[in-house]
């Protein structure tokens, strides 16, 4: 699994210069992503063992399409969770973005500028969420809960509740999600970029500092409000982008696409992957693997013919289990307070 390699290679090689197989294994298991990577590998083996169709090209394509959107959303939510915020409305932005593109196209914009316009509107929504949260001191949980309903209403109004076909030629449609793996390629690209942003740029470091100790961050001169604002804008924009990909994949826009379900899948991917809901720490790679775990569970159980009700029970239990593992591994790492 590619993610496993990345995590092991990026490990704290300089920290504890452990040698030998067991030393490396020990270092790996102390990483926040470790438990979820192990779970992902076990699940893939299990489903392949119980159903030979699991690792076929057709199924991997289906799987990738299920995984991609939550992973893209997770990339934004992880940044927000790290700086102690959350965006509950990203699933609604997901549904809105294709309609904005549609309307922009209808009034005469070419497709690409229409896509850009849609993303700008999403960024603007993130900006408004940021303004209300930061300037008016409303907790982001409440701000985005309000936006959740507000944006649903806007989407239903401008779509009049009807789906529409996506514009654009074959090439663009393929690139934007219609080719089987296009969405997943976008998702992986975004994961790579966001991993670099989190681990190797000042923005990522300052995001961790903002969530880890906001007083300390402010006293060292970091503009924490700017960090929060940027991450709100990022999350909304990524949510809108995921919505556009989904619309192009299906070939039509759907006013009821995404919603709270996809938002929670994104947040759950992040949390299962090892991002602390209390802020200050998180991992993008973990979010990717968390998304893979949720996707594999969904897809695997669907292949096995388990019904949707059972699936929800399993997802719920998986989230709880992952959280228990997450918390106890963190304690093992001695990374808690004090």
């Amino acid at each position: 699994m590619a993610a496993e390699k990345t995590a092991a290679a990026g490990g704290p090689a300089q920290a504890g210069p452990r040698s030998g197989l067991f030393g490396r294994l020990h270092d790996f298991l102390l990483r926040p992503e470790a438990s979820v990577i192990v779970v992902a590998v076990i699940l893939v083996i299990y489903f392949q063992f119980t159903n030979v169709n699991f690792l076929t090209n057709a199924n991997l394509e289906t799987l990738s399409q299920f995984i991609a959107a939550p992973v893209i959303i997770a990339c934004g939510e992880i940044m927000l969770l790290i700086c102690r915020e959350i965006d509950l409305s990203v699933g609604q932005v997901f549904a809105l973005a294709p309609f904005v593109m549609e309307r922009a196209y209808d009034i005469g914009l070419p497709v690409v500028p229409a896509i850009v316009a849609a993303l700008l509107v999403c960024a603007l929504i993130g900006y408004v969420i940021g303004l209300i949260t930061i300037r008016l001191s409303v907790p982001s949980f409440i701000t985005t809960l309000g936006m959740l309903f507000l944006i649903t209403g806007v989407t239903l109004t401008i779509s009049r509740g009807f789906p529409a076909n996506t514009p654009g030629g074959k090439l663009l449609t393929n690139i934007m999600g219609n080719w089987g793996y296009a969405e997943m390629v976008w998702a992986l690209g975004i994961v790579v970029v966001m991993h670099i942003v989190l681990r190797h740029t000042r923005w990522g470091l300052h995001t961790i500092a903002t969530g880890g100790n906001v007083v300390a961050a402010a006293e060292s001169g970091i503009d924490c409000d700017r960090i929060r604002m940027g991450n709100f804008i990022l999350t909304s924009t990524l949510g809108g982008f995921a919505g556009l990909l989904e619309a192009f994949r299906i070939g039509s826009t759907d006013p009821l696409a995404g919603g709270s379900n996809i938002m929670f899948l994104g947040v759950a991917s992040g949390v299962i992957g090892g991002t602390a809901i209390a802020g200050g720490t998180g991992t993008i790679i973990g979010g990717l693997v968390g998304g893979i775990v949720l996707g594999v569970l969904q897809d695997g159980f669907t292949l096995q013919g388990i019904n949707a009700f059972t699936f929800d029970i399993i997802i719920g239990a998986a989230i709880l289990l992952a959280m228990v593992a997450n918390i106890h591994l963190a304690r093992l790492r001695g990374a808690g307070q004090g």
């Binding site: 470091l205 961790i208 500092a209 969530g211 880890g212 100790n213 007083v215 300390a216 961050a217 006293e219 060292s220 200050g280 720490t281 990374a335 307070q337």
Partner: peptide
């Protein structure tokens, strides 16, 4: 150097 130690635990 502040009383509340301007340090970030997670870093």
């Amino acid at each position: 150097v502040y009383q509340d130690l301007a340090l970030v635990n997670g870093l």
